[in-house]
Design a protein around this nucleic acid. Structure first.
Length: 552
RNA sequence: CCUCCCGUAGUUCAAUGGAUCGAACGAAAGCCUUCUAAGCUUUAGAUGUAGGUUCGAUUCCUACCGGGGGGACCA
């Protein structure tokens, strides 16, 4: 990458004392721009102008720079702009096509083992639209990390024991359960009746743990199996999968042991419970083992970290959750740093915002919850209507793909951590800045290429020689995806890729309006360009976990 | 009361301490006998307030105002 080349050459010149600077891709100021001058002029006792001239004269001694850079320019406020030679920018089109499905990948983390945990739905409860957030983000992050060469394992952690299970089983005793959705209803019923039947439900909870009641064991197995089977059905729809499944019923046992081993060192008894005194560290004090002797989520999470490492000795562990647990996670990581310092250092917590509806917060306790499936179903039905008059073989499949793209795009276009306000009408619209916009642009590229094949026109992967002027589309394509992947990985934010793809689509659509591709003296070259755009979009969409249909 | 996160066009979102703060929807005006108009072109429109650090602040610090999350036996 030329970006890397520039960065390295400047680093060589400045030596070890330099302050961090960036080389960024630019569309307004040459092809690349750097702030290295302003960052470092002072350090080297020169004024910015002198320092910039010094850098330029040193850089122009490099054969590697001269091979690719047409000219360097010192800009007013102290920036250095690099203009890459046209033939290099154009030559990149050939690189895209020769790398094909690997284009955009890099080897920066080859050999590294990374585990990423996300989605974490609870059996017996509804898989709701909130789970779509964590799943979409986690799946995209997994793919991005994989694209950097790391070996990635996906983990899903599920609460198969606990009060929510007892509530659901209480509901199951009072209503007929036929599918996962009615199980969600049973949970809501148990929650609503919790206050009046507290003792009975708590009794169920104990029995779930000690497995002493055959009827409850049976209901438990039935509900658990129903949920897990249903989750797989959803994962398939979303294009996601997991390598490992961890359950609270396992982590709880180990977590409790770990806490007890560190009693009076890290954890202390207080009011009959075992707590971690977070207040000593400027955090909240939290209960790890409750006064009934049962491990809370905190202790289970401690057990989970150990189980994860034993299963897959990772260099890095990424955990994706909603941001409502941020404070609690701080406490947990603090406790972990005392119990398993080496694991704590490898753990990164990424949180996403909540999915809010205009009508207010949804709650699975009252049953006021939108299931992921009904939400996707509504989107899919809208899509189906839209494509009703098109000649497409499997419209149902396409409608589902458009629906998944719609929800995933709106999640991944934002930086993680912020809430998403879901306006139904807007989410159901396919215009503008949307998943369908990306898909449509990709479909256009494939449609042209198909047409070119049908009418026997040359597909020109063999040549990129053309005397036409470099377009802004080509400048956008130049090293753009690789750049976005590295940034997305560094920040654990897929939105850099989403934004980049949207830019490519905008450029491509504008190019498409202005330039006839077929039946033109430049057709050979333009087809190559279109093929490259298609490759970039396909690879980019794959990284985001968004399906790229061939027709729509 | 304590604590964490967030305040950017009418709305929903962008912007690794950098150059003129970008899109989309909505509003106004155009473009389909030409490769799929789910598209394109043009116009209007924004950094909550007050300080500070910096050559340079939407970004970092302080206070205030506004919204949201969390605050011992749910997660």
């Amino acid at each position: 990458m030329i970006k890397q080349l520039i960065q390295n050459e400047i680093t060589k010149i400045l030596g070890a004392d330099m302050r961090d600077f960036v080389v960024e891709k630019s569309s307004t100021f040459g092809n690349y721009a750097t702030n290295a001058v302003m960052m470092n002029a002072k350090n080297y006792g020169k004024n910015p102008r002198e320092f910039a001239e010094f850098l330029v004269s040193e850089l122009s001694k490099s054969d590697e720079i001269n091979a690719v850079v047409e000219k360097m320019e010192i800009a007013g406020p102290g920036f250095l702009n690099f203009y890459v030679k046209d033939e290099v920018v154009r030559g990149h089109i050939a690189d895209i096509l020769s790398e094909k499905e690997k284009y955009g990948n890099n080897t920066s983390e080859e050999g590294k083992k990374i585990i990423i945990e996300y989605t974490d739905p609870n059996p017996f409860k509804e898989f709701h639209i909130g789970h779509l957030m964590t799943n979409t983000l986690g799946e995209a992050l997994s793919r991005i990390i994989e694209a950097c060469g790391a070996e990635t394992k996906r983990a899903c952690y599920q609460g198969d024991v606990g009060m929510h299970v007892a509530k659901a089983i209480y509901g199951m005793k009072n209503m007929e359960i036929t599918d996962a959705h009615s199980l969600g209803k049973a949970y809501a019923y148990g929650s609503q009746n919790y206050d009046e039947h507290k003792e009975e439900i708590q009794e169920i909870n104990r029995k779930v743990y000690d497995k002493s009641d055959d009827e409850i064991n049976e209901l438990y197995e039935k509900g658990r199996a129903l949920s897990l089977e249903y989750f797989e059905h959803i994962y398939k729809k979303l294009g996601t999968h997991f390598d490992y499944y961890f359950f609270e019923s396992k982590t709880g046992v180990l977590g409790k042991e770990i806490v007890e081993q560190n009693l009076n060192k890290v954890f202390f008894k207080s009011d009959g419970a075992v707590v971690f005194p977070g207040e000593d560290y400027g955090l909240h004090t939290r209960v790890f083992i409750n006064s009934e002797g049962l491990p809370t989520y905190e202790a289970k999470e401690l057990g989970l970290s150990k189980i994860k490492y034993d299963t897959y000795p990772y260099e890095e562990s990424v955990i994706v959750t909603g941001n409502e647990v941020n404070d609690y996670f701080q406490v947990l990581l603090r406790a972990m740093s005392l119990v398993f310092p080496e694991l704590e250092k490898k753990t990164k917590h990424v949180s996403h915002g909540m999915l809010r509806l205009p009508s207010g917060k949804m709650s699975s306790r009252t049953g006021d919850v939108i299931s992921a499936e009904s939400f996707l179903g509504a989107l899919s039905a809208m899509s189906l209507e839209k494509i009703s008059d098109r000649e497409i073989e499997d419209k149902g499949k396409l409608a589902d793909e458009i629906a998944v793209a719609g929800i995933k795009y709106s999640i991944l276009k934002q930086s993680p951590g912020k809430d998403i306000i879901f306006d139904f009408d807007k989410s159901l619209s396919f215009e503008g800045d949307s998943g369908a916009y990306l898909q449509y642009a990709y479909v256009r590229t494939q449609s042209i290429l198909r047409k070119a094949d049908i009418i026997g026109r040359a597909r020109v992967s063999e040549t990129v020689l053309d005397d036409s002027e470099i377009s802004s589309l080509e400048k956008t394509l130049f090293e753009g995806l690789s750049n976005a992947v590295l940034l997305a990985r560094k920040e654990l934010s897929p939105n850099y890729i989403t934004a980049y793809l949207t830019e490519v689509c905008r450029e491509f659509n504008a190019y498409y309006e202005q330039n006839q591709i077929l039946s033109n003296e430049h057709t050979a070259f333009r087809l190559t360009l279109v093929e490259a755009v298609g490759t970039v979009l396909q690879n980019g969409l794959t990284l985001l976990g968004i399906p790229a249909p061939e027709k729509m």
